[in-house]
Design a protein around this nucleic acid. Structure first.
Lengths: 224, 224
DNA sequence: CCAGTTACGCTACGGGTCGTAGCGTAAGGC
DNA sequence: GCCTTACGCTACGACCCGTAGCGTAACTGG
């Protein structure tokens, strides 16, 4: 899934070097580790990859697109073993996300490209397709398992189910990212456990005798 | 609370123009709106503010610090009317955060400076003190109210309470940011309501007859 | 009122990155 | 072998950076 959206109209002629592709993406990650996002430069990546700078521009429009592709492949490693319970699965997802955010490449690149994407529609789509989708997979997978186990009800309305899945995804991914990058504190097993407990049981559940539960709770079971 | 940490050792001599300060920060926000983070330049801000470029560098070390200060003041607007219930308060906090993220200045700047902060300890502290702290205030305020109402138990151990507050803060702020900037979909009242319901009631509450609740749920009431 | 001290505006500069153009050459498809 | 495309290389104007140097402005303390 190369996705080098830069003009590749016809076929015939010398094909693009797949080896150069790999070298460039590898060099980009290395440069991210050494220099970080802001000091990463196209020239530096080119020389690390042993490639002319012009070759970079023939394939990627600029730094943003290049880095997205370079980091995206790391999200392919994400996989979720079936641990037998929803709680365990959520905890595992959290730790998987966290492990990726530990790596300096993703750490420095992810927020940067998201920031850039606020002014670039195409970049936003690229991120959504190559990074967010890979993350979301895990959440959908976990939900399906939980439904199969009977831990979560099966929502008949597909649209409602999709909206709830989006909500849960934003909560999980958002919380992990915020903890790791904004609060800049470790996402360890202890935190993951407390987060999972909060997500599954909520704040207001069995608070203490003598207090009324949240009034708006019309239908307490979150349909998924 | 100027925080221009750039050397101001003694007093006597011509004082720094407070008017210039205001003009610079205002110009910075305007430039963020027009150009976005990546294309914002110190020279542009200076000319917008009617100020020499050197004046900027006399007060701020660079783009990062300047933008943090320029955006931070927007977070002072955050205030939370007492709405009578925990659910309503949470919903209000969510919508307050969301409203700030609607603005193009904050939208483009926030993630960018966070990204930069991953490689800059001092910048991280600056963000924490001038932006994150202002957000966290609301969460702490909401918790205190809920405890006074009896909606949340009072945690006797101060450290545990602080950790739980941090958790909740990361969940709320993280979810909102992720929804608004990564998923790039609107944080409207509908979403806020569903999020609040999830946060208060959790996923696993009253799932459906015939299924066991999450096994690890040792003490279901989240102490806060 | 007069030093002393600091901020300001302006100009100019070396250094770096950007993104592109132009060229000769290398590597496949037919 | 011919056509087409990719590649490496060089060079370039444009822009931004961050700083130095200077003369001037503003405020403080004697």
């Amino acid at each position: 899934m190369p996705s080098h959206r830069l003009t590749r109209p016809t076929r015939s002629g010398r094909p693009r070097s797949a080896a150069a592709d790999a070298a460039i993406l590898e060099a980009t990650r290395a440069s991210l580790v050494d220099l970080g996002w802001s000091k990463l430069t196209m020239g530096d990546v080119a020389s690390r990859a042993g490639v002319a700078k012009t070759t970079l521009y023939r394939r990627w429009a600029g730094k943003n697109e290049l880095v997205v592709d370079a980091v995206a492949v790391l999200f392919d490693e994400l996989e979720l073993p079936d641990l037998g319970s929803l709680a365990a699965d959520v905890e595992a997802v959290v730790l998987q996300f966290a492990a990726l955010l530990e790596r300096p490449e993703t750490r420095t690149a992810l927020m940067a490209v998201v920031a850039e994407s606020t002014r670039d529609e195409a970049l936003r789509d690229r991120i959504r397709n190559s990074i967010v989708a890979r993350q979301k997979r895990l959440v959908l997978q976990g939900r399906e398992r939980a439904q199969r186990r009977g831990e979560l009800p099966v929502e008949p309305d597909g649209e409602v189910a999709a909206r709830t899945a989006d909500l849960i995804f934003d909560v999980i991914a958002g919380a992990v990212v915020h903890r790791a990058l904004v609060s800049a504190e470790p996402v360890d097993t202890d935190w993951a456990r407390r987060f999972t407990l909060l997500l599954l049981s909520g704040l207001g559940s069995a608070p203490r005798p003598g207090s009324a539960p949240a009034e708006r709770a019309q239908k307490p079971g979150g349909s998924v």
